[in-house]
């Protein structure tokens, strides 16, 4: 198949996967947070309230697409897509089946870590273009946060790369051994915390802090464009959970075909549940606390983990 056709097909599949992830993710978050607060969550629309998010989506699509008069209209309309597209791209390199990923590149791991940096542009532009102080502040906060947390996140995954000796995602998943669990437990925690911060989710949701900035960088977005931001958030949550499950938790555990994919999906949903649990349990960080955590806690810890991984690779494995 020609590269253009293949790219178009994957774009379509990836977009659909993210839309489904958002549909399921929002419903799951409402259910989990409901249970945490001694409520049932959605239960009226469809069995167990499964159709509630679908009903919400129809409402969002039908809503008026408002562009503020003072906004830079073109950039304002483009920003949600700049946040969404990198999420779709990051799914490309996740090994979904044993020995296979849609784009099983020799630099796939690095690509997965690099693409969220493009989302930063969308966050900044979305906030700036709306000509709103809350939006601009949210965009600035988001950019500072996402750039800072990229470093411990990358370092935590780098520890795996050092031991496995490859940046090909399927090969890295294949190289996984049970003893990696205790060895990389710290790296996994660093990866998880950094990923939550990169996703701008609670307790690191300062860029959209509802009590301070109303909704931050997407304060002026309505209808489908607001939904695109939401889809990017839930798609990102799926991508980082799938990647985390594949790299740190053994992924498919070598099981073939759909069975392996199912094992991977169960692990990813478990990680998604932890992310939701964290959001609904902890109060929001302050900006200085957030930055201190990235630079003075997580980055040094990730560096120590990298040293340990390097020592294991040099002394034990080679």
């Amino acid at each position: 198949m020609s590269p253009l056709l293949w790219g178009g097909l994957f774009g379509l599949l990836s977009g659909t996967a993210i839309a489904l992830a958002a549909l399921f993710g929002v419903w799951w978050e409402r259910k989990v947070s409901g249970r945490m607060q001694m409520r049932f969550g959605p239960q009226q629309a469809g069995p167990a309230g499964l159709l509630q998010t679908l009903a919400d989506t129809i409402k969002l699509v039908l809503k008026e697409d408002v562009t503020p008069a003072a906004a830079d209209a073109r950039i304002f309309r483009m920003a949600p897509l700049l946040v969404f597209a990198p999420v779709a791209l990051s799914l490309l390199v996740v090994p979904l089946v044993t020995g296979w990923a849609p784009l099983d590149s020799g630099v796939g791991v690095l690509l997965f870590l690099a693409v969220p940096s493009v989302s930063v542009l969308g966050v900044l532009l979305g906030g700036w273009s709306s000509a709103n102080t809350y939006g601009t502040l949210g965009g600035l906060r988001g950019a500072a946060q996402m750039v800072s947390y990229e470093i411990p996140r990358t370092l935590s995954v780098l520890a795996l790369v050092v031991v496995a000796g490859t940046m090909r995602p399927s090969a890295l998943m294949g190289a996984w051994r049970l003893w990696w669990l205790p060895l990389f437990a710290v790296a996994f925690v660093v990866y998880l915390i950094s990923s939550i911060a990169e996703l701008n989710r609670g307790p690191f949701d300062l860029p959209e802090a509802d009590s301070e900035l109303v909704a931050g960088y997407f304060v002026d977005y309505t209808g489908i464009r607001w939904a695109i931001f939401m889809m990017a958030e839930y798609g990102g949550m799926l991508a980082c959970s799938l990647f985390g499950a594949a790299m740190f938790l053994g992924g498919t555990n070598g099981l073939p075909g759909l069975l392996g994919a199912l094992v991977l999906l169960v692990k990813a949903v478990a990680i998604v549940t932890v992310i939701i649990w964290v959001k609904w349990s902890f109060p929001r960080f302050r900006q200085d606390q957030l930055m201190r955590l990235a630079w003075k806690v997580l980055t040094p810890i990730a560096l120590v983990q990298l040293l340990v991984a390097g020592a294991v690779a040099v002394v034990w494995l080679r």
Binding site: S117, V118, L121, W128, L140, A143
Partner: peptide, 13 residues
């Protein structure tokens, strides 16, 4: 894209 360009954008914003 993720480093230099974001820094430019951050300054302008």
């Amino acid at each position: 894209v993720g480093g230099v360009l974001v820094l430019f954008l951050l300054a302008i914003t």
